[in-house]
């Protein structure tokens, strides 16, 4: 049971990095980046290949850099080449499929068994003779590794989004006319924002590959919907307040989503249902507030209808 909770937490935290990426691109920049799936796989592929060559830490940076390139392409398509923002994400996502296969050496999967990863490195850090103080953490070395990255990304976002560049990125999603009036090119802020967001997505993919000791071409399938669902769940708890607080909310959302999924699995829901569940959550999370705003109007309509029916009944009587 403990192991189950631990695994849930770990997987939730890994995907929370993608949620934080969407927190930047979707919540701040107001761009729905549909290349997220491909970028996650890209991060996994690059992360796995570089780890395979014996450099697990370099793999992390390489995966993030690959994410930057992917984000750069997506943003150039939408800001400089007149392609709709949703379409440019889809186009890049499709293209990345081939790129990812090529990166993994013309194969659809890479195995990392017995390969040094950031997780095994963390383990060997704790697992030293006579190191009793750290020893009690040994069981949690994977969780700690992921948590380390999550905290760094949250701290980075909390800092970055309050710098002038970060403010400009937030304003771009909020009112791009105002950004222009401040002599800032919204194309520049969109490009920067998407590069940073996709670097985080790449990191997320890389950690996932090293965590499960393998990368495959489907590793990022549906990630954008899962992350969006998590983000919206997180928003239910912490939609207002400081950036750091909202970022933590996004992480909580990711872990909660994973928890719900794990519980559903315990009740014998087939594993393949994950994606349907995430889709339904996204729909509910967006439709919910919409329905709430429409509800009074709907009730009024209903009452009017009833009223008319009543009048007709009276006439007939």
């Amino acid at each position: 049971m403990m192991l189950l909770i631990q695994t849930t937490l770990e997987l939730g935290l890994i995907s929370s990095l993608t949620v934080l990426a969407l927190f930047l691109s979707y919540s701040m920049l107001n761009v729905c980046d549909l290349s997220t799936d491909g970028c996650f796989t890209l991060g996994a592929a690059v992360g796995a290949m570089v780890a395979l060559s014996g450099h697990p830490i370099l793999a992390v940076f390489a995966a993030m850099f690959a994410g930057v390139i992917s984000g750069f392409v997506v943003s150039i398509l939408q800001t400089k080449m007149g392609i709709d923002s949703l379409l440019s994400g889809i186009v890049v996502n499709t293209g990345l499929y081939s790129v990812n296969i090529a990166i993994m050496g013309d194969s659809s999967q890479v195995n990392l068994n017995k390969v040094k990863t950031v997780f095994t490195m963390m383990r060997s850090l704790f697992d030293k003779e006579g190191n009793t103080a750290l020893g009690i953490w040994l069981d949690w070395y994977k969780t700690l590794t992921v948590l380390f990255f999550v905290i760094i990304v949250i701290l980075f976002l909390a800092f970055f989004l309050r710098t002038r560049l970060g403010l400009a990125i937030r304003a771009t999603g909020n009112n791009s006319a105002m950004v222009k009036a401040s002599s800032i090119n919204p194309a520049f802020t969109t490009i920067t924002g998407l590069c940073v967001a996709n670097a985080i997505t790449g990191l997320s993919g890389c950690l996932m590959a090293q965590y499960q000791k393998s990368a495959n071409i489907d590793i990022g399938g549906g990630m954008v919907t899962i992350a969006l669902a998590s983000l919206l769940i997180g928003g239910v708890f912490m939609s207002r307040g400081k950036i750091a607080k909202r970022a933590v909310g996004a992480v909580i959302g990711a872990v909660l989503f994973r928890l719900v999924y794990t519980i559903a699995l315990r009740f014998n829901m087939p594993a393949s249902m994950l994606k349907l569940v995430s889709s339904v959550i996204v729909v509910i999370a967006i439709f919910g507030p919409y329905m709430r705003s429409r509800y009074p109007m709907f009730m009024r309509k209903l009452e009017l209808k009833k009223g008319y029916a009543g009048e007709r009944r009276d006439e007939n009587a």
């Binding site: 309050r162 710098t163 002038r164 560049l165 403010l167 400009a168 937030r170 304003a171 909020n174 009112n175 006319a177 105002m178 950004v179 009036a181 401040s182 002599s183 800032i184």
Partner: peptide, 25 residues
């Protein structure tokens, strides 16, 4: 049209003032 509603007054003014480097706060 002239200001970003989701951001604070000082954040809006910071962008309008346009002082300091990109990473300054």
């Amino acid at each position: 049209l002239g200001s970003a509603p989701g951001m604070s007054i000082e954040e809006n003014l910071t962008l309008a003032a346009g002082r300091g480097g990109w990473l300054s706060r």
